[in-house]
């Protein structure tokens, strides 16, 4: 363990000194394939392509990168593909917490352990949004209205039994309310449906709703995070992300709910290969383009590798599993 840490530190030093990672124990010998577990244009797609563009721009890799979209079955296609590429470190799979949540709700041909986790590079926040002209000024009045008329409030989200749906179920439990969840194809669709007033609320990520927020179509009530979001430029009327209360302080007792942006390798790859990519991703994070991506999409810039990563995945899976089991979605 100590050895490994020292090694990682050494490689980091090498990289920091600006020497290419040529001395690393493993490096790609042929084109690297970035497998995106979403369709073109989706959040995971932007994540992977941002990483690709930074690597290409700064020449961090002496092999070309090809990006392949495998978004079928909510991303399951990409993970199954990763499983079949066992022992092949030239395929890197980009995803979210879908990797470990999907197999819980659907019968799929892979298990979460079939892939080797490399890193979590960012976490996307979830907020509770209502229409711009909604009567609800804060989360409290929203919850009260939902309590007064059970099964009347409609909350839109992306996909079914997926992150948005799980969050809505958590809200129902935590606040003791009953709502109608309407699954749409994407977060973008959920955003326009809310702006058009066809649903009462949604639980979109910041980047999915910012356009409509600026235009006054939607308005955030609270963020599902332990503390308020990072201060940035004001978005509307002098109000910015940091002015949004956390849902906990606003009266919905949910400590945190986030979606990690994950990077995986197929199963059965060497630790050297994992270390190589950890190092590569570290370099990516240091570039201004990465910071710009994080700011633009209003994500939290977090980086989990090694032991931290396993704890993160474990916790996230347990929380998801609790809701999924309680809702009876668990697949046998």
């Amino acid at each position: 363990m100590l050895m490994k840490k020292a090694l990682t530190a050494a490689t980091a030093l090498v990289a920091a000194l600006g020497i290419s990672a040529a001395e690393a124990a493993w490096k790609p010998t042929k084109p690297v394939e970035f497998v995106v577990s979403s369709g073109p244009g989706g959040g995971t797609d932007q994540f992977a392509r941002t990483v690709q563009s930074i690597i290409t721009k700064y020449n961090l890799l002496d092999q070309p990168i090809v990006v392949v979209n495998k978004g079928g079955g909510s991303g399951a296609e990409g993970f199954v593909y990763g499983k079949t590429a066992e022992g092949e470190p030239h395929k890197v799979i980009f995803g979210t917490n879908n990797e470990w949540l999907l197999p819980l709700v659907a019968k799929l041909a892979y298990k979460p352990e079939d892939l080797t986790p490399v890193a979590v590079m960012a976490v996307d926040e979830f907020l509770l949004w209502v229409t711009g002209d909604s009567p609800y000024q804060d989360a409290k009045s929203f919850i009260e209205a939902a309590k007064a008329e059970p099964g009347k409030i409609k909350i839109g989200g992306s996909q079914s039994k997926d992150t948005d749906h799980i969050l809505v179920k958590q809200i129902e439990r935590a606040a003791g309310i009953k709502v109608i969840y309407v699954p749409f194809k994407s977060g973008g669709e959920a955003a326009t449906q809310l702006a058009g007033g066809h649903v009462d609320a949604n639980t979109n990520n910041p980047s999915e709703n910012i356009g409509q927020w600026k235009a006054g179509g939607v308005r955030p009530l609270c963020v599902f995070a332990p503390e308020r979001m990072a201060k940035g430029e004001p978005v509307v009327d002098g109000k910015g992300w940091a002015d949004i209360p956390t849902c906990k302080e606003a009266g919905i007792p949910i400590e945190h709910y986030q979606m990690p942006r994950t990077v995986f390798l197929p199963g059965g790859v060497s630790q050297d290969a994992v270390d190589f990519y950890v190092e590569l991703l570290k370099q990516v994070r240091e570039k201004p383009e990465w910071q710009e991506y994080i700011t633009r999409t209003s994500q939290s810039n977090r980086f989990f590798v090694g032991e931290d990563l396993h704890t993160f995945i474990k916790n996230n899976e347990d929380e998801g599993r609790a809701v999924i089991t309680a809702e009876g979605w668990l697949v046998k």
Binding site: K70, G71, G72, G73, S74, A76, E77, V80, V105, A106, K107, L108, A109, Q159, S160, K161, D162, H165, P183, F184, K185, W329
Partner: peptide, 20 residues
């Protein structure tokens, strides 16, 4: 393949290649 509304995988008969 994946059914958006229910989140179930339909008509794949356990066949991976039909997931998409």
């Amino acid at each position: 393949g994946m059914d958006t509304v229910s989140g179930n995988v339909r008509l794949t008969y356990g066949f991976d290649e039909l997931l998409r």
